[in-house]
Amino acid sequence: KELVLALYDYQEKSPREVTMKKGDILTLLNSTNKDWWKVEVNGRQGFVPAAYVKKL
Rank of each mutant, 00 (worst) to 15 (best):
1 K>C: 08
1 K>Q: 14
2 E>Q: 13
2 E>G: 10
2 E>F: 13
2 E>V: 14
2 E>R: 11
2 E>Y: 11
2 E>T: 13
3 L>S: 08
3 L>P: 05
4 V>C: 09
4 V>N: 01
4 V>A: 14
4 V>Q: 01
4 V>Y: 13
4 V>E: 00
5 L>T: 10
5 L>W: 08
5 L>S: 05
5 L>P: 01
5 L>M: 13
5 L>G: 02
6 A>L: 02
6 A>H: 01
6 A>T: 03
6 A>S: 06
6 A>K: 01
7 L>M: 12
7 L>Y: 04
7 L>F: 04
7 L>S: 03
8 Y>N: 11
8 Y>V: 14
8 Y>W: 11
8 Y>Q: 13
9 D>Y: 05
9 D>N: 09
9 D>C: 05
9 D>R: 03
9 D>W: 03
9 D>L: 02
10 Y>F: 08
10 Y>I: 01
10 Y>P: 01
11 Q>F: 14
12 E>D: 05
12 E>F: 07
12 E>L: 08
12 E>G: 14
12 E>K: 15
12 E>M: 12
12 E>H: 10
13 K>S: 13
13 K>Y: 05
13 K>C: 09
13 K>V: 10
14 S>L: 09
14 S>R: 11
14 S>N: 14
14 S>A: 10
15 P>Q: 10
15 P>D: 13
15 P>R: 06
15 P>W: 11
15 P>I: 12
15 P>M: 10
15 P>S: 14
16 R>N: 15
16 R>H: 15
16 R>K: 13
16 R>Q: 12
16 R>L: 15
16 R>W: 15
16 R>M: 13
16 R>G: 13
17 E>I: 03
17 E>W: 04
17 E>Q: 14
17 E>D: 06
17 E>K: 04
17 E>S: 07
18 V>F: 15
18 V>P: 01
18 V>S: 02
18 V>H: 03
18 V>L: 14
18 V>I: 15
18 V>G: 02
18 V>Y: 04
19 T>Q: 05
19 T>P: 08
19 T>W: 04
19 T>A: 08
19 T>Y: 04
20 M>P: 00
20 M>V: 12
20 M>A: 02
20 M>I: 14
20 M>K: 00
21 K>E: 07
21 K>P: 01
21 K>C: 08
22 K>N: 04
22 K>F: 05
22 K>W: 03
22 K>D: 03
22 K>Y: 05
22 K>T: 08
22 K>A: 12
23 G>D: 07
23 G>H: 06
23 G>I: 01
24 D>T: 08
24 D>C: 05
24 D>E: 13
24 D>Y: 05
24 D>R: 03
24 D>V: 05
25 I>E: 04
25 I>K: 05
25 I>N: 03
25 I>W: 05
25 I>V: 12
26 L>H: 04
26 L>A: 11
26 L>W: 02
26 L>R: 01
27 T>L: 13
27 T>M: 15
27 T>D: 06
28 L>I: 05
28 L>K: 01
28 L>Y: 02
28 L>P: 00
28 L>F: 04
29 L>P: 00
29 L>G: 01
29 L>C: 06
29 L>R: 04
29 L>A: 02
30 N>P: 03
30 N>R: 06
30 N>C: 09
30 N>A: 12
31 S>H: 10
31 S>F: 08
31 S>I: 06
31 S>L: 05
31 S>C: 09
31 S>A: 15
32 T>K: 11
32 T>H: 13
32 T>A: 11
33 N>M: 10
33 N>L: 10
33 N>S: 11
33 N>V: 05
33 N>E: 11
33 N>Y: 09
34 K>H: 11
34 K>L: 11
34 K>D: 13
35 D>M: 14
35 D>H: 15
35 D>E: 14
35 D>I: 15
36 W>L: 03
36 W>M: 06
36 W>K: 02
36 W>S: 03
36 W>A: 02
37 W>D: 01
37 W>K: 02
38 K>L: 15
38 K>V: 14
38 K>D: 05
39 V>A: 02
39 V>N: 00
39 V>C: 04
39 V>M: 02
40 E>M: 08
40 E>N: 05
40 E>I: 07
40 E>T: 06
40 E>G: 05
41 V>W: 09
41 V>G: 13
41 V>I: 15
41 V>D: 08
41 V>H: 15
42 N>K: 11
42 N>C: 10
42 N>H: 11
42 N>I: 07
42 N>S: 12
42 N>G: 13
43 G>S: 07
43 G>K: 05
43 G>Y: 06
43 G>C: 08
43 G>F: 06
44 R>W: 05
44 R>D: 04
44 R>P: 01
44 R>Y: 06
44 R>G: 04
45 Q>W: 08
45 Q>H: 10
45 Q>E: 13
45 Q>K: 13
45 Q>P: 08
45 Q>L: 09
46 G>E: 02
46 G>T: 02
46 G>V: 04
46 G>C: 04
46 G>Y: 03
46 G>F: 05
46 G>Q: 02
46 G>D: 01
47 F>S: 03
47 F>I: 08
47 F>V: 07
47 F>G: 02
47 F>E: 05
48 V>W: 00
48 V>R: 01
48 V>Y: 00
48 V>N: 00
48 V>I: 09
48 V>D: 00
48 V>K: 00
49 P>Q: 03
49 P>Y: 03
49 P>M: 03
49 P>T: 01
49 P>C: 03
50 A>H: 03
50 A>D: 01
50 A>V: 05
50 A>T: 05
51 A>H: 12
51 A>V: 10
51 A>L: 12
51 A>F: 10
51 A>P: 08
51 A>S: 13
52 Y>R: 06
52 Y>H: 08
52 Y>I: 07
52 Y>A: 11
53 V>N: 00
53 V>S: 01
53 V>I: 10
53 V>C: 08
54 K>N: 07
54 K>Y: 12
54 K>M: 15
54 K>D: 08
54 K>Q: 15
55 K>L: 15
55 K>D: 05
55 K>V: 12
56 L>W: 09
56 L>Q: 06
